[in-house]
Design a protein around this nucleic acid. Structure first.
Length: 453
RNA sequence: GUGGGCGUAGCUCAGCUGGUAGAGCGCCUGGUUGUGGUCCAGGAGGUCGCGGGUUCAAGCCCCGUCGUUCACCCCA
């Protein structure tokens, strides 16, 4: 029975082995950086009660609901009311409340998992994708310096990845809300929503929307647009905001915080990751209360933000205690899948094997296995040829897979000759002592330095 | 969820005003009976995404659907 070849499912990307090797490498690098900074690993279940998922934001349309094919007729509601999580922050907030008694605060954790959203897919935007989050949560209160910390850690993590340079853009809700209130905006949130359109629609359109939808007069709109135009790689944005002549306590507090984030990130900001203040950033989610982050890859700005987050003072609350937090979330799939498909990042082979042990004939397969086992014992990924074909074919088998070495058996399993098929060089070797150069042990993941015109 | 572009061999693509499919690269075999890459000769491989419709005739026109992509929406 054949039903034809299966076809892709929209929004559920699957990777080929060489691509998956890249993704695993990236996840390993992220993990290493997060753990270097003392973030503890957490994995939450894939599902949450719908009431948990729907408590924040209006993402209800995106939630995949889970249901048994044949629900118990006696208890029709037994399986109802759970859905797949659409991010890692909401499940984490629930986790913190549930295990508050067993966690030590401030609690810092990283979490790298799949999430699901029922959206219309396009490049960099999927229905099943991987996110890597770090968050720090306090009980009752959380010192501001943790805002600086999560920015530093994520900047450091991204700097180590084989991806194009990124810009980590930082702003502060207090700053812009204080400013908008200071200019006399009647609806601060409306101003924020409209200003967020900058970059998508012409500035003149935004100016008109500020009048129509946010109720600003010309002068107020101009001030807000001038604020949104401010960017700086250091604390110099403060002077430029002051030049606009708007004052409020909240604005001052926000500027001080933003300046502190930039100063704190000065040592990690560089070629690979540029940390900068961008007073246009607002973020759609309404639970952010202070610092906010967005990140774009240079030359790939059309993908949108690949890493964002911020400060949330009241995401988790059990009615007695509030747990404020600050976190940042890297879209591993959004960042990586387009890079893989365009060839900007690649692994130099689709298999882990560093050595192919050639096979003379089937009776000697045991000897070939013994050679491979001696190599593996010293951490050298090795496989034995599938069939005793002509050596030319066995070499080609290795070549097609990018396996750099072919081992030709000698008179006993301890000795043989090993050929570097890239150079053609072939030397006698002992299975207990020979090792390839460190660089050949695993597939090499590399980013091409191709620049977008 | 709304609207648009695209879908031909493993890959990149060609295919005229409708007349029943092609190239390059890759792959396989042999020349080279345990040493690949070059070269030469030969070869395999396509339900033209899928399903309907119009027509004597559909890769080409129409409808639907799936996939992909762009904009909106939203966001990683």
């Amino acid at each position: 029975m054949t039903a034809g070849r299966p076809t892709a499912m929209s929004g559920f990307p699957e990777l080929l082995p060489a691509e998956r090797l890249v993704e695993q490498h990236v996840v390993d690098l992220l993990r290493r950086t997060f753990e270097l900074h003392g973030f503890a690993p957490v994995e939450t279940r894939a599902v949450e009660p719908l009431e948990t998922l729907l408590s924040k934001g209006e993402t209800s349309k995106e939630v995949y609901v889970l249901r048994r094919l044949q629900a118990d007729p006696a208890r029709p509601d037994a399986d109802a009311g759970i859905g797949l999580h659409f991010d890692l922050t909401v499940p984490f907030a629930r986790y913190v409340l549930e295990f508050a008694g067993k966690l030590d605060f401030p609690f810092r954790r990283y979490q790298i998992q799949k999430v699901w959203r029922g959206e219309r897919p396009q490049e960099g935007r999927y229905r099943e994708f991987t996110q890597a989050d770090i968050d720090i949560v306090g009980r009752g209160e959380l010192a501001f310096h943790h805002d600086v910390e999560v920015a530093r850690v994520m900047a450091e993590a991204m700097a180590a990845l084989p991806v194009p340079p990124v810009r980590l853009q930082v702003n502060n809700r207090k700053l812009i809300q204080g400013f908008y209130a200071g200019v006399g905006a009647p609806d601060v949130d409306a101003v924020m929503r409209v200003v967020d359109k900058l970059g998508k629609v012409p500035e003149e359109t935004v100016r008109r929307m500020l009048a129509d939808e946010a109720g600003l007069d010309d002068e107020q709109a101009s001030l807000c647009l001038r604020l949104a135009g401010i960017r700086s790689a250091d604390a110099s944005f403060v002077d430029r905001v002051r030049e606009l002549g708007v004052t409020s306590d909240l604005l001052e507090e926000g500027m001080a915080e933003l300046a502190a984030v930039l100063e704190g990130c000065a040592t990690v900001s560089g070629e690979r990751v540029r940390v900068e203040a961008d007073l246009r950033i607002a973020r759609g989610l309404d639970y952010y209360t202070g610092t906010v982050f967005e990140t774009v890859m240079e030359g790939l700005e059309h993908l949108g933000s690949i890493c964002s987050g911020g400060r949330y003072d009241a995401l988790a609350d059990d009615g007695r205690t509030t747990y404020p937090g600050v976190g940042i979330s890297l879209g591993v799939s959004r960042m990586l899948v387009p890079l893989l498909h365009s060839g900007r990042v690649r692994a130099d082979r689709p298999v882990p094997s560093a050595v192919l042990v050639a096979l003379v004939d089937e009776p000697s397969r045991g000897d070939a296995d013994a050679v491979a086992q001696r190599l593996r014992a010293r951490g050298i990924p090795s496989e034995v040829a599938a069939a005793p074909q002509r050596f030319g074919k066995q070499i080609r088998y290795a070549e097609r897979r990018g396996i750099p070495y072919v081992w030709f058996p000698g008179p006993d399993p301890a000795t043989g000759e090993v050929k570097d098929i890239r150079s053609g060089e072939q030397v006698p070797a002992r299975a207990d002592t020979w090792s390839p150069p460190e660089a050949d042990l695993r597939p090499t993941i590399s980013a091409t330095e191709e620049r977008v015109p």
